[in-house]
């Protein structure tokens, strides 16, 4: 039974040169990425659990979600900021996680480069799109059927 092995603190402050895939040090980026995963993870636990509770557990749950529900939430700056923070933190946290996985499993330089290029492009598109939607959203669009809109929209 080998399970009693004592776990020691990491001894190396750096990766030995023979184990690095790139030539030289990239400064402290990896340390900040590591720290960001922990800090953003803590914040995301609160943001995502709150998001799931309000959207799935309260009232009629998922059945209540429609355009009027989203419009009602985003009429309130509180939920705009909540969802914006969740969008940015979750996308950056997830992108860094997938970056780590690509670095672990894609051994060819070209494969890693292209997988990460696709990843970063997708991340940029989703973050920009999501941010624009939250800030340019009109809860009472003209020419929309009144019964689909939240109650606070003026009658057409």
């Amino acid at each position: 039974m080998a399970a009693t092995t004592e776990i020691q603190a990491p001894r190396s402050g750096r990766v030995a040169p023979e184990y690095t895939r790139h030539g030289r040090s990239r400064g402290s980026f990896e340390m900040f990425a590591w720290l960001f995963m922990r800090v953003s993870g803590l914040v995301l636990v609160v943001l995502v659990f709150g998001h799931l509770f309000v959207n799935l557990m309260v009232g009629e749950g998922v059945h209540a979600i429609d355009f009027g529900f989203v419009a009602g939430k985003w009429a309130d700056p509180f939920w705009q900021v909540w969802d914006l923070a969740m969008l940015w933190l979750a996308m950056l946290h997830g992108t860094n996680g997938v970056r780590t996985i690509i670095n672990d499993y894609a051994e060819k330089d070209g494969t890693r480069f292209w997988l990460k290029a696709v990843l970063y492009a997708a991340t940029a598109v989703i973050i920009v799109l999501g941010t624009l939607v939250i800030f340019t959203f009109d809860p009472c669009p003209p020419n929309a059927a009144a019964e689909l809109l939240p109650a606070f929209c003026p009658a057409p």
């Binding site: 939607v133 340019t136 669009p141 929309a144 059927a145 689909l148 809109l149």
Partner: peptide
């Protein structure tokens, strides 16, 4: 998450598309 941002972005298209 990628899909969820895209489906939510439909609120910007029209109430009908989102619903």
């Amino acid at each position: 998450l990628l899909v969820h941002v895209l489906d939510t972005a439909l609120v910007r298209v029209s109430p009908e598309a989102y619903n």
